[in-house]
Amino acid sequence: MCAPRWDSGAVFNALIGGHGGYAITPSNRFVWGGYYEPGSLIWHSRWVTSAGMYESREALAMPGDSHRAVLLRRILAKECDAPVVIRLDPCADYGTSALRAIRRDGDVWEARAGELWLRWTGAPDAQLTGPRSSRCFGLELTVPVGAHHDLVLEVSDQRLPDSPPDADAAWRATETAWQDGVPLLERTIAPTDTRHTYAVLRGLTSASGGMVAAATTSLPERAEAGRNYDYRYVWIRDQSYAGQAAAAAGAWPLVDDAVRFTAARLLEHGERLAPAYTTTGGRVPDQRDLDLPGYPGGSDLIGNWVNKQFQLDAFG
């Protein structure tokens, strides 16, 4: 997970072989699955265990903040008690900046990692483990059947607000944002699939209107094929195609975003229009290695050489 923006340094880096992660797993033997709530990117991790089934409802809080990512996780004990093991190991700058300045105030933990401020609510009994150079939080808890337990993690490149978000209010705001932000699209061939596609595109769109090509870096198109790229940037071509598709479906907010971001870049750069930009309209950084093992069958690249290319398709 990169925070607070798509092209920021990663805080959780295990996917590409680095340090840092945030895991909730059942204490019992389990089989994992999951699903998205319709018309949203609210995800449910579902565990079928030897004792019964329980879930973790998860989302990035909305409306979003360009300086602060808020990760909501709600453990739901629907059918049985839900014993879980929780491990929080933030490590900023692609795993090079461990936690420091750690302190607890009631049920709230605060810390720094690199240039980031972090705050974790809902785990007052968490224990710090590991050497000072790689501290992480560990916690075991059991949610009684019929109850739920909230965890709220904030990651910001600015000082955090005085008070952490209220979990119930944050969930209500997130639900409302998705309900209001994703149209029904009933005149399409497959409304359910089309709504989910729209939700994905909405989720990839920043406050500037720029839509990143993907939320990932270094994941291989095919194992050991050498095609591993950082796609956490806005390609003018892709944004234009997405805007045209949204227009065909009558999904006007995404059209407005595409026009707003593309027009701003065209007015700023004219015939020097670049093929891709950061979500803030800046230059895509040079491609480089992170000196990590990388995703299996992939690599550990960030940045993209598109910043040195001229692509005619950016002009249509």
Rank of each mutant, 00 (worst) to 15 (best):
M1P: 14
M1Q: 12
A3S: 06
P4M: 03
D7H: 11
A10E: 08
V11S: 02
F12A: 07
A14N: 13
L15Y: 12
G17V: 03
G17P: 05
H19Q: 15
G20K: 00
G20H: 00
G21W: 03
G21P: 08
Y22I: 12
I24G: 03
S27E: 15
N28P: 11
V31K: 12
W32L: 15
W32K: 15
G33C: 10
G34R: 08
G34D: 12
G39A: 09
G39H: 03
H44F: 14
S45M: 09
T49H: 07
E58C: 07
L60F: 10
A61L: 06
M62T: 07
P63H: 00
V70Y: 02
L71N: 02
L71A: 11
R74H: 04
L76P: 08
E79K: 05
D81W: 01
D81E: 11
P83F: 02
V84R: 01
R87K: 11
A92S: 08
D93P: 12
Y94T: 10
T96I: 09
A98G: 13
V108M: 02
R119H: 06
P124E: 09
P124K: 00
A126C: 09
P131I: 10
C136K: 10
L141V: 05
P144W: 01
G146A: 06
A147S: 14
L151G: 02
R159P: 15
S163V: 15
P164H: 01
A167N: 04
A169C: 07
T174M: 04
A177R: 08
W178Q: 11
G181T: 01
G181S: 06
L185D: 10
A190F: 13
P191E: 09
T192V: 14
L201N: 05
G209C: 07
G210V: 06
V212M: 00
A213F: 04
A214N: 10
A215H: 11
T216F: 11
T217M: 13
P220T: 09
R227G: 10
R227H: 14
Y229A: 15
R232Q: 12
Y233L: 13
G243A: 02
A246T: 07
A247P: 04
G250R: 02
L254H: 06
V255C: 05
D256P: 03
D257K: 07
A258N: 02
V259E: 04
R260D: 15
F261R: 05
T262Q: 12
A263F: 06
H269G: 14
E271I: 12
D291M: 05
P293F: 00
G294E: 01
Y295C: 12
D300P: 06
W305E: 15
V306S: 02
G316Y: 03
